[in-house]
Structures are given as C-alpha cells and as structure tokens.
Simulated assay, not measured.
Amino acid sequence: MENNAPSTREALDAVHEAREINAQRLRRPRRYWIMFGGILAVFALTPYTTGWPPLVQYLAPAALIIIIGVTAAWKQPTAVRKIRLSGRMVLQLIGFAVVAGVIVGISRALYSEHGWWWLPLIAAIVLFGFVAGIGPRMDRSWARQVSRVEG
C-alpha cells in the first residue's frame, strides 16, 4: 500500500490558503467603515439643526452624507462582495444597529430636554469610533464564517 500523507498535507494546505485568500477578499476596505461611521455621526449631529429653516434642516444632512459617500467611494474597487447573512451575522448586525440607535436616541433626548450642547458632539465621536473600530472586526468575523469549509 502506498502512503499519500504528503499529497494529503499539500491539498489541505492549499485549501487553507484558498480559505484565507477568500476571507481577505470578502473584507470591505477600512474606508467603508470610516464612511459608515461618518454617516452615523451626521445623524448624531442633527439635533444642532433644529433652529434652522425646515428645508435646510433636511437638505444639509443629506448633502453632507452624499459628500461623505462620494469621498469614501473615490477609486473604490469594482469587485462586489456578496455575503449572505446567516443567523449569527444578523444578530451582530441587529446589535450594531441597536447600539447606534440607543446612543443617538439618548443624545437627542438629553439635548432637547436639558440643552446639553456638547452631548450630540460626544455621541457623534463615540458612534464614529464604535463603527470604525468594531465594524472591521465584525466584517472579518463574517468573512471567516462565509469562507469556512463545511463538510
């Protein structure tokens, strides 16, 4: 009988290498999370617009979001990353959205009730840091989960 241990090891190494390459390709660029954090920060800063005319109140954040999106998308790679969300990924995404919503909601409520001018600014900074810090980790987790070899 012939022992195929070296060829088996080479095949397993090739599968592991392909898995790592796929996981890297599935990750979004860091600027994606910076863009997403910037957009959420704009929403956290909207309480400052309450004294503005209604039209400007709605157009200014939209214009700022478009500027952030265009700036972050400059020279964006054309590859489309398709990740189907599974149960664990959906829970992570829901938790991510809940944390952002709670931070913005509390900030907005305290600003309107107590007039603490600094709170929306702090909320925007916290949201930006949260998204820019946790987003890439969540993305790596998703890429590892998608590239996992099932069998």
Rank of each mutant, 00 (worst) to 15 (best):
R140Q: 11
P54C: 03
R148Q: 12
Q57K: 12
T49I: 10
E113F: 09
I83E: 03
V70F: 15
W52D: 00
L64P: 01
A123F: 04
P54V: 06
G87N: 03
K82P: 06
W74H: 00
A44W: 01
W142C: 13
S141Q: 01
R88I: 12
G115C: 08
Q57H: 12
G87S: 07
G95A: 04
A73H: 11
L93I: 14
I94Y: 03
T78R: 15
I103R: 03
T49H: 10
Y58E: 06
W118N: 14
W74G: 06
G87Q: 01
W118R: 11
G95N: 05
S141I: 07
I83T: 13
I134W: 09
I134M: 11
Y48W: 13
A123H: 04
V102P: 09
L85T: 12
T50S: 15
S86W: 14
R81D: 04
A109M: 05
P47A: 06
R84K: 10
A123I: 07
A132H: 06
R108I: 01
F128C: 14
S112M: 13
R137S: 07
I103H: 10
G87F: 01
R140H: 10
A62Q: 02
M138L: 11
L119H: 07
V149I: 14
Q92T: 00
A97V: 14
P77A: 11
Y111M: 04
F130G: 01
S112V: 10
K75G: 02
F128N: 10
G95T: 08
D139H: 06
I65N: 06
Q57N: 09
P61R: 03
S147D: 05
I125V: 15
L110K: 06
V98E: 05
V98K: 13
L64E: 06
G133F: 09
G69Y: 03
A62G: 01
P54N: 00
V131Q: 03
A124Q: 05
L110G: 00
V104F: 03
A72Y: 05
A109T: 08
S86L: 11
A132S: 15
W74Y: 11
S141K: 07
I106R: 10
F130W: 04
R84W: 02
G51H: 01
G101D: 02
P120K: 11
V98Y: 04
L59M: 15
S147H: 07
Y58T: 13
I83H: 06
L93T: 13
A132L: 10
G129D: 06
G151C: 09
G129T: 08
L55A: 14
R144C: 07
F128M: 13
T50I: 15
V90K: 15
T78S: 14
I125K: 09
K82V: 08
Y58H: 15
A109V: 09
R144G: 05
W52R: 04
